[in-house]
């Protein structure tokens, strides 16, 4: 109960940061690179847009160092839409995150899609007013990010491939990790915390509640309405779609279809209906043919 008057007040509290992600649940967050794309995303029913300079599929093709986007571009997108705007900072690049906060973005994605700026340390996210979302491949990684202050977790998947197999693996791994904790006794939880390389308190909390203490979305390789619905059935609370929309034949229609499939993820008749006549999906990449240096999910630790 919150009749307790010692509760924190003001901006940048855990509840305000995590609560923001609660408002995005059941929704689709779309990668956009221009204000025009942001408008298309908003019109299609996106709950937020992710402003970035190049979608992951193009980062893969063009190579080079991928960094935070141009502030002018981010401001242009903030000015174009009324829904929340997120933006990506490199792993460990706390100054990029400071800049994004100063620009007024609503959520920072400390993202493996960009080239990492620090090989050992993630950003200390609890020090910021703006909330952060971070990628995770399993429960231990999710809990490490939460202990650093992440207010939302997403699967990493393998962005820019149009191949959902890695996102599936991560969603199943996180879910299995949570289930397993529920079967352990108190003594075993200490060992589990050691194995997960995560703080004991967080491990014990997940064991008790049977859920992460923050919202869990999915990301990486989602290209079709059925992909989005599958991730929701696997326990995701919402979906990030990157290259899948604006690298497809008819972005506006595909965007709307993925939004509808995410809401009605448990109704195959709706998914069938919205999957019709969408034109070309993005061209996919088989993850197993990617050299290790190009596998984004391996970035971060």
């Amino acid at each position: 109960m919150s009749l307790n008057h010692s509760e924190p007040t003001g901006t940048g509290t855990d509840r305000v940061k995590r609560g923001m992600a609660e408002q995005l649940k059941g929704g689709v967050i779309m990668d956009v690179v221009t204000p025009e794309q942001a408008k298309i995303a908003e019109d299609a029913g996106a709950v937020a847009v992710m402003a970035l300079e190049r979608v992951p599929a193009d980062i893969r093709v063009e190579g080079g160092i991928a960094r935070m986007s141009d502030p002018d571009m981010i401001e242009g997108i903030i000015g174009a839409v009324s829904i929340p705007v997120m933006a990506k900072a490199r792993i460990g690049h706390f100054v990029e995150a400071q800049v994004l906060q100063a620009l007024g973005v609503d959520y920072v994605d400390e993202s493996e899609v960009l080239t990492p700026a620090d090989e050992a340390h993630h950003i200390v996210k609890s020090a910021f007013t703006v909330p952060f979302v971070c990628g995770a491949t399993d429960l231990g990684e999710a809990l490490r990010r939460i202990s650093e202050g992440a207010a939302m977790i997403r699967s990493k998947g393998e962005a820019g491939t149009g191949n959902v197999v890695e996102a599936t693996r991560h969603m199943r791994a996180i879910r299995a990790g949570i289930k397993r904790l529920g079967t352990l006794d108190e003594t075993e939880l200490f060992v589990a915390a050691k194995e997960l390389r995560a703080p004991y308190d967080l491990v014990a909390e997940v064991a008790r509640t049977g859920a992460l203490p923050v919202v869990l979305f999915t990301a990486g390789g989602i290209a079709t309405p059925a992909d989005a619905a599958m991730m929701m059935q696997l326990g995701a609370q919402g979906v990030f779609v990157g290259s899948g929309i604006f690298k497809s034949g008819d972005p506006a229609q595909r965007a709307a279809a993925i939004v509808q499939a995410t809401t009605f993820f448990d109704d195959p008749s709706v998914i069938a209906k919205v999957s019709r006549g969408l034109g070309e999906a993005m061209v996919g990449i088989n993850v197993s043919t990617l050299p290790e240096s190009e596998q984004y999910a391996k970035r971060g630790w």
Partner: peptide, 27 residues
């Protein structure tokens, strides 16, 4: 304002007995 302006505070509500509500404002 935007998310960085989201905040928590106490609000007294007519018709709700007891102490003020702890209110969470998000965008």
């Amino acid at each position: 304002g935007r998310q960085v302006d989201s905040f928590e505070t106490e609000v007294q509500l007519a018709g709700v007995p007891g102490p003020p509500l702890h209110a969470v404002f998000i965008r």
